[in-house]
């Protein structure tokens, strides 16, 4: 017995001596700070148990478009967890840092969780905002980030546009006019979702914040449900923020295996629970049912349904000279 324990001790010491520290950089979009703070702890614990190695994950957060540009300009991300597939497509096509078919490598088009756009209003909802029509009324001050830099802002724009299409019989001209009226009510454009939350919640600007669902819940949690309330419009867009390993960087760092496991673990029960607790809609139906009370019921339209694809939506609405540039006058 004593011999066995000695052997075990030696093996454990050898394992500890051989345990290595692996560093990953996760370049993410703006509002996922709290999610990945919790998730990274969980993944590190899981990986340590599985392999004995220590994983230290550093985070970078910012508007999804800006983050993609940073990666293209040399920020060495092992993984990217951005707001929309288009931004990761840009990294694949322009930077050739990962293959073009990256989205097929993980389930659900590499989107382990989903979200949507809701309204965060002042307590008591003094402007009686219930739906998208109320948001475009004259005199209503709307806070939303810049679609040129923020993924959340692009989802919000498309949610409003989709509502207008559904309401006005898919009349593009009327939909354009609708979003024009919306952005006429927007006095300040932050570069990312977190900045807009700061503008609305901390700087006290605006009557309504077009927010990521998780951001709205976090605002209530942090600043108090006595100051704000969430209004869920009857219709919004299904936002699918994807994740991907940046192959060239992970290969250079020797972190390809860990990076892949890091993203795969998002689909595990623990990963899905963490997403749900942070107000992201989990893909796992059992866990979604468990946390159903966290999420309002509403009609969710998809991007493909209303706009065809991200490439088309980007080209039509957000590229230089697109619809947003035409309708928004600062």
């Amino acid at each position: 017995m004593k011999t066995f324990l000695n052997i075990l001790l030696v093996l454990l010491l050898a394992a500890a001596a051989n345990a290595k520290e692996i560093k990953l950089l996760n370049v993410s979009y703006d509002p996922t700070r709290e999610l990945y703070q919790d998730y990274n702890v969980a993944f590190a614990k899981y990986w340590k148990t599985k392999t004995g190695d220590d994983v230290v994950v550093s985070q970078s957060h910012g508007g999804s478009g800006k983050q993609a540009l940073s990666v293209l300009n040399g920020l060495e991300a092992d993984v990217v967890t951005l707001a929309l597939a288009y931004d990761i497509d840009a990294i694949a096509q322009q930077g050739r840092l990962l293959p073009a078919d990256w989205q097929k490598r993980l389930p659900d088009n590499s989107t382990p969780y989903t979200s949507t756009i809701v309204f965060l209003v002042r307590k008591g909802n003094p402007k009686t905002i219930k739906d998208w029509d109320d948001v475009v009324k004259p005199g209503v001050i709307v806070v939303t980030p810049n679609p040129k830099t923020s993924g959340g802002a692009r989802w919000a724009y498309l949610a409003a546009y989709a509502y207008a299409l559904e309401t006005y019989g898919h009349d593009d001209a009327k939909a354009r006019d609708f979003v024009k009226r919306l952005y006429k009510n927007v006095p300040v454009l932050d570069s990312g979702a977190r900045g807009s939350t700061t503008t609305f919640v901390e700087r006290g600007i605006g009557d309504v914040l077009l927010a990521w669902e998780n951001e709205a819940h976090l605002a209530l949690k942090e600043f108090g449900s006595d100051k704000f309330e969430i209004v869920t419009p009857p219709l919004s867009i299904l936002a699918e923020p994807p994740v991907a390993v940046v192959d060239k960087v992970a290969k250079k760092h020797g972190t390809a295996d860990v990076a892949k496991a890091y993203l795969e673990y998002l689909y595990s029960d623990e990963g899905q629970e963490i997403a749900a607790r942070n107000f992201y809609r989990p893909r796992n139906e059992t866990i979604a049912t468990k946390y159903a009370a966290n999420f309002s019921q509403l009609k969710l339209v998809t991007l493909d349904q209303e706009f065809g694809s991200w490439a088309k939506a980007q080209k039509t609405h957000f590229a230089d000279g697109g619809t947003f540039d035409q309708i928004y006058q600062p």
Binding site: V188, D190, S191, R203, G204, I205
Partner: peptide
Amino acid sequence: DQKVRILSRERELDQEA
């Protein structure tokens, strides 16, 4: 009050930029 806050925030964002 809103106008003042908006101007202040715009200045803040300009400084950050």
